[in-house]
Design a protein around this nucleic acid. Sequence first.
RNA 1: GCACGGGUGGCAGAGUAGCUAUGCAACGGACUGCAGAUCCGUGGACCCGGGUGCAAAUCCCGGCCCGUGCUCCA
Length: 462
Amino acid sequence: MPLRVYDTRTREKRELSTLEDGKVSMYVCGITPYSPSHLGHARCYLSFDVVHRWLEASGYDVDYVQNFTDIDDKILDISDSEGVEFSVVANRNIDDYLGVMDAMNVLRADHYPRVTETIPEIIGMISDLEEKGHAYVGDDGVYFEIDTAPEKYGQLTGQTLEMVRAGAGGRVGGTGSGKRDHRDFALWKLTKPGEPSWESPWGEGRPGWHIECSAMSLNHFGEQFDIHGGGHDLRFPHHEAEIFQSECCTGTEPVVGFWMHNGFVNIDGEKMSKSLGNFWTIREAFESHAPLALRYALLSVPYRNPIDLTPEFLDEAAMHYDRLLDAYGNSLSSQEESGIDLSGASERFSNAMNDDFNTRSAMIEVQAVVSSAPGSDVAAWLEKNAGEVLGLLPSPEEVAANLAQVESARAEVAERVESLLDERESARQSKDWARADEIRDELTSIGVVVEDGPEGPTWHLG
RNA sequence: GCACGGGUGGCAGAGUAGCUAUGCAACGGACUGCAGAUCCGUGGACCCGGGUGCAAAUCCCGGCCCGUGCUCCA
């Protein structure tokens, strides 16, 4: 089954075709580092991490670019209030982002361009747009003029010029004072004294929000590239603005082969937002959930669907994750093959991933293998599919270290447990159930779970 | 208001025309002094109304409801 990818622009799943055989150029809109990363970021970059991993597992050479919008109004607000340079705020939050992504096994992109390091390219692109008559200078900045390319409107959202002209339900306001039309958008903002700014042909200023991605992708990939990803909310205006900028600048279309957008994160059925008080940063989530258990939860819904993170949903994911780790650990320490035919599971796993990266269906296959008998072949299967493709496994070294840690904790209490168990067995022999249960309660209180079986009792640390 | 996406068992969540989804929970059985774990098994769903088809959860039309977007947003 060939790999099919859903494209927001054409609203269909299509077989992936790339500009160059065997290679994929992929650009994903990165964060604006004005605050620590939240669960919405986790969902987005986890989704595209799986895209990245599956493309590579399928034999593609992937060139993955993700930007940092390291200059922006909110960053300036925060740096002002703290009395520090804007770069201090940006760097702090970029470090936080990379740290939490590493913890969740997100592979690094190949390049992380920053707006502040792309200024010459941005200015060059705006100059080209101005020369070609697509941009004009207003009194507070340079704007893209929508009416110079009306046919490009609504490619990702289906909205028409007239609809937005009508005024977005009366909620259009606060547009730049220099705009000719409220649908036009800023390419370059002239800055106020005291703000960070760069020299340009139009005066001291800084880039508008949309132009950076066009400049970076043009700079890195050229006039066209294969996949452009980002959150569902970025379709409009951000990604439609990119289409205007890139295609009007180069005259080549389409700039992007496949537009991919991930669905949003809800908390207990409500949109996650600071105002609702249900806003979780990733680090806050780590306090109650292991990073890879959180990864398990976030990948257990296909990337385009909204995901509702309820406590029950997260707990269920954590349980499955623990089972996966147990099964992997048992299989790793197994010297023999299970003898199970894993080819059906492999095929279904691949088919699921090839169907627009359906991680949900793929993980069902993982769950089936997890509940089968352990063996070295199972370990290899899990390592490849749950590990390399889905990124759900710690390294074999970490797993071995964890097993060793559990083993030593077990050894510490083993002598006492064994003697208590002996005592309990003799109580059970004489049908002194009260005494037997008393001993079991005592063991429970020191964290030992006793399980009676046909071969006598076994125990493990709860 | 307009656009896009969605409405599937107690819960989560796949599935785009015919064949058990799956997991958790529940229930029954085996095993057990009890509990737990394990194994076997069972029931239960396709928002509403029309249409097309031999056949519709799936395609078409209409309606209702929910989510998101509509110039800060992953």
